[in-house]
Design a protein around this nucleic acid. Structure first.
Lengths: 250, 250
DNA sequence: CGAGAATTTGAGTTTTGTCAATGATCGTGG
DNA sequence: CCACGATCATTGACAAAACTCAAATTCTCG
């Protein structure tokens, strides 16, 4: 993922909502400065996770949700037998662990894809605080609702789209998420492996690799390892939607 | 769906949480009797929907969530071009419309599959009431969280399972939902068409039909139109998980 | 620098989709 | 109550997309 400069600055210092550059995207989005102080007070600092380290594991007791501060993570669910399903990638300002509320344990493991820092938000305190702060409550409802909406989009992708469309859609979505966070929407680094990508998109690794090669050949994107350059966004959008649907009138 | 007896009893009469047979599954689940009265007061009655009638349409302004009282519905999202994606079926006691909170309009249409009655719960009033009633708030969080969790399961189904496994999983899930509602888990009627089923499961109608025929031939289920009889649940569970994975030791 | 992991590419197979035709069911109106 | 049209469901034949297996190449990190 783009630059993790200032890695060395004191994390405790950085970890205050009032000074956090993500506060306009994150949970306290809608809060007044003084309310933000209250919210800030319930947050727990965590040591940065190294690549491959789990934030929590499937089956762990649910206690907190987490806001991603820097880096990225993946969520996977295992179903007894070997094969896991990767259900989500999380980028800075996104909220992790909301699907653990229902059963009071986490239904999937969440693992850092690179060095990653998060803010831990104990859920019982968040709930209590949301009683007093309607804006916070609203934001929490919205976060969950947005995730529901995104899930529906993902189901559509998995059930109706071809492999080409899936890759194109994924790149567009990622590009958009970077843009919203102030990074270049055209040039970025994937923090996940091709295997992760395939698992997430419901494709074999080989298929992912092949399609990326083809996109590159068609000069839609330039791919160099995990470095991505979107060269022709309009074309990519077309690819995501219609898949060469040959102009069949009617 | 199973028996809709007492259809004729006054709906207004029936539509009180305190006397509703679903209250142990529904949103007011965790409420004391007196709190339930408060909750009950914000609910609006609606005339029953006829088969094919929309509860709301994609793009409509989000105002309320709905609890299904009887019947069933499907949610579909259209993406400009023709083909829709069916993202959910809703049965009695389930909460519809939660994914509309985020953007303040509904991201999909919800349509009755048969004669269906719902309780309308205006969201602003629900939100306000949830401020005073922590149990209600908790239940609302849990409902959304559960839906997130179910969505993950669905993604897994769409991305990793074969057509046979998808059908088997679907039947098991449905069976379980009926069981929880006090209906027979082995004998029930599908309220959705084969086309709906295929759309939901990411399969062609023909595939759905073929597999159902095969299941019938193997005497796992008996199928007669939309009437389903599960004959061999253990086998069905096996089919959902391993797909004839031929006992390949290691 | 080197071993193991990750990625790419090729060849052949399998699953599922598409097209087409037939049969069953439902709902409506005579 | 039955007939008829329309929708829905089933079945067959073939095609296409994506998977699996295999092997070569590149990358990563100690």
């Amino acid at each position: 993922m783009p630059q993790q400069a200032s890695q060395r600055r004191s994390l405790l210092q950085e970890a205050r909502c009032q000074t956090c550059s993500l506060s306009s995207l994150c949970l306290p989005l809608a809060l007044e400065l003084e309310d933000m102080g209250q919210f800030d007070a319930i947050i727990r600092r965590r040591a940065p996770l190294k690549k491959g380290e789990p934030l929590f594991r499937q089956g762990d007791l649910f206690t907190s949700v987490y806001a991603v501060r820097s880096g990225s993570l993946k969520q996977t669910t295992s179903e007894g037998n070997g094969n896991d399903q990767l259900t989500n990638f999380y980028l800075p300002s996104e909220l992790v662990g909301l699907d653990g509320i229902d059963e009071s344990y986490y239904p999937g493991s969440v693992i850092a894809l690179e060095t990653t820092t998060v803010c831990e938000i104990p859920f019982d305190r968040l709930d209590t605080l949301s009683e007093e702060l309607p804006e916070l409550r609203g934001q929490l409802y919205r976060s969950m609702s947005k995730e529901l909406k995104d899930d529906r989009r993902m189901m559509r992708l998995l059930s109706r789209k071809t492999a080409d469309q899936r890759l194109a859609s994924f790149l567009i979505t990622l590009s958009d998420r970077f843009r919203r966070r102030g990074y270049s929407p055209f040039s970025f680094r994937l923090s996940m492996s091709r295997a992760d990508l395939g698992n997430y998109l419901g494709l074999a690794v080989e298929t992912v690799s092949r399609i990326l090669s083809r996109f590159q050949q068609q000069e839609v994107v330039a791919v160099s390892g995990r470095e991505i350059n979107i060269l022709d966004m309009p074309r990519l959008i077309t690819l995501a939607e219609e898949e060469e649907q040959a102009v069949t009138p009617r």
